[in-house]
Amino acid sequence: MRILLVIATVVIALLLVAGFALPGEVARRVETSLGGEGYAAEVGGVSIGWFEGRVTLRDLRIEDTSSGQALLQAPEVAVDVALGSLPFGTIHVESVQVPGATLDLTGDQAQRERWMQARRERFAEAPPVHVARVEAKGATVRLSAEQLGEDAVLAPTDLVATDLGNRPGAGKLPTTAHITATVEPGGLLRATFRTDPASDRPIFALDLQGTNLPLELVGQQLGLEVTGGRASLDLQASLREGAYEGEVQVDLENVELEEKGGFLGGLKAEVAEQGAGAAEGLGLLESESSFSGTIEDPDATLGSALRIVLKKALQEAAPA
């Protein structure tokens, strides 16, 4: 989901500043628009198809100015605009292609949120924009321990999103994103995420499945101390007007305990009593629960709200 937000930010900046100017001026404007809040942007080159309405950025890089760590590296961002829409005041984008990008979310989370929020506010003030389809195929996404429980790389990650806009959907969820990501070794995540990026308050519906995931990735969120094992996850959640609810099922298999008692409060007592190293033959442990709550922070963003809901879901799913 985070990759959708960052890519949308890039596309928005390009649409708002390009104006089919000369390539050098487009690059300068995009770099200026994407820079700020502790980040700098660099564009390697720009190609403009004047007759077909295509703008292509090459070698786009957005990096933290303090650490030099790249938030986004994209070999190419290609945007196809419906030229016939321009005289009528609404920018219609037929497609956006972002192949082979790398998104690193292990940096300063608060700084990243401020950067995206600033661009979102600028997007909201712009003339109407509608993006029919965004594709980011073969991406590499890096997540931090703060987000999952342990650093992880999702690669390849494929995203297809439809109907992004900068006008509120009046309580509806116009934008749908389908995401598939490989989690090494051998894990798979699939998600369908529906939202309204232009809503004043975060709003979404999420359907997430994970299979054969390394248990270390979610063990911390489940309140478990483990050194090995696999997990499967089935989660449905929704957020509207600050209130969220959902259902989650977690299956744990071939769990390896870090130490005796590491599962106390997390696994059934008869399992924990077997002590360290006794979990290899535990087989399958299942947990299913419902959860709900509210997000009180009036400044919560879509990203921060999503993290709160996922954390609550995993906490409720901890086997008891």
Rank of each mutant, 00 (worst) to 15 (best):
V77P: 11
D104Q: 04
A101E: 04
L105C: 12
P75T: 13
D104M: 11
V77M: 09
L83A: 08
V96R: 01
L83E: 08
D80P: 10
S85H: 02
G107P: 03
V79Y: 07
V81T: 07
A74C: 13
D80A: 15
V77Y: 00
F88C: 01
A74M: 07
L83Q: 08
V81A: 05
S85M: 09
V79G: 06
E76I: 06
T106I: 12
L103M: 11
A110Q: 15
V98A: 11
A82I: 09
R112A: 14
A82H: 09
D80F: 13
P75H: 10
L83I: 09
D104H: 03
A82K: 14
A110E: 12
Q97I: 14
A74G: 11
I91Q: 09
G84Y: 06
A82D: 11
D108Q: 05
L83S: 06
E94D: 12
P87S: 06
E76M: 13
P99H: 10
Q109W: 12
L71H: 02
G89M: 06
S95R: 15
S85G: 09
L71K: 00
T90Y: 02
A110M: 12
V77G: 05
L72T: 02
A101V: 02
V98C: 13
P87L: 05
H92L: 08
G100F: 10
